[in-house]
Computed example of a mutant assay.
Amino acid sequence: MHPDEEDCSPRFPFGVDDAPAGYLLKMASHAIRRDIEHQLRPHGLTPKQHHALTILTLNPGITHTDLEKPLHIEKASVTSLINGMEKRGWLVRKQHPEDARIKQIFLTEEGMQMHKVSVQAVRQAQVRLNQAFSPEENEILRILLRKVVNAYS
């Protein structure tokens, strides 16, 4: 920083070196999410849309209800997300062949193309993270993060 510039960074009662692990996880998560959002934004995508496109690519015909858990959002939010993606032409809803009350969700050709675009954008965001660690450190980090996830599951 230039000596004449004012330091506007937030002040905490601790530095990054002595911050609690939970706080560091939160900081890292926010930084990664911002980078992913930055990579997706030029394509008119959000991280939640990327996640939904990925789930729909892997699970053609999935229902609204089946999307709630992996997307970590409530039913009304799933409906809003799916409605928006349908308006953009990325997916279609079809009646279940055995139960007309159930609507299955399928990606359109345009939706499949948007998924490919979103995957490339997210990969760009992941490059920075991968460059920060050696392959061994990356594996250790993955092991530790899985332990954190499992501790709260």
Rank of each mutant, 00 (worst) to 15 (best):
E5Y: 06
E6I: 15
D7R: 08
C8Y: 14
S9R: 10
S9H: 06
P10G: 11
P10V: 14
F12D: 08
F12P: 03
P13E: 11
G15S: 15
A19V: 03
P20N: 13
P20W: 05
A21N: 05
A21Q: 05
A21S: 09
Y23S: 07
L25H: 11
M27E: 12
A28W: 13
S29A: 14
H30F: 15
R33C: 11
D35M: 12
I36K: 04
Q39C: 12
Q39W: 05
L40K: 04
R41Q: 12
P42H: 07
P42Q: 05
G44P: 07
L45K: 01
L45G: 01
Q49I: 05
Q49W: 01
H51M: 06
H51Q: 07
A52D: 00
A52M: 02
L53T: 01
L53Q: 01
L53V: 00
L53Y: 00
T54S: 09
I55P: 00
I55R: 07
T57L: 08
L58N: 13
L58E: 15
N59A: 08
P60V: 03
P60D: 02
P60A: 04
G61S: 04
G61Y: 04
T63G: 08
T63F: 06
T63M: 12
T63V: 12
H64Y: 10
H64V: 01
T65L: 10
L67N: 05
E68N: 01
E68C: 01
E68S: 00
H72W: 12
E74Y: 10
K75E: 09
A76H: 06
S77W: 10
S77E: 14
S77R: 13
V78A: 02
T79Q: 05
T79S: 12
S80A: 15
S80M: 13
S80K: 14
I82A: 03
N83C: 09
G84Q: 09
G84D: 05
E86I: 00
K87H: 09
K87G: 07
G89R: 02
G89P: 01
W90A: 00
W90C: 00
V92W: 07
R93K: 14
R93L: 11
R93H: 10
Q95W: 07
Q95G: 11
E98L: 14
E98H: 14
R101N: 08
I102A: 06
K103L: 14
K103S: 11
I105V: 04
L107R: 00
E109V: 00
G111D: 01
G111C: 02
M112A: 05
M114C: 00
M114Q: 06
H115T: 02
K116A: 04
V117T: 12
V117P: 01
S118I: 00
V119E: 05
Q120A: 10
Q120M: 04
Q120E: 09
V122N: 03
R123Y: 03
A125E: 02
Q126W: 01
Q126L: 10
Q126I: 06
V127I: 11
R128F: 13
N130M: 12
N130E: 13
N130V: 10
Q131T: 10
Q131Y: 11
A132W: 11
A132E: 06
A132H: 09
S134I: 03
S134C: 06
S134N: 05
P135Y: 05
E137S: 09
E139V: 15
I140C: 08
L141I: 14
L141Q: 08
R142D: 13
L144S: 11
L145T: 13
L145M: 15
V148S: 03
V148C: 06
V149T: 15
N150W: 07
A151C: 13
Y152D: 06
Y152S: 09
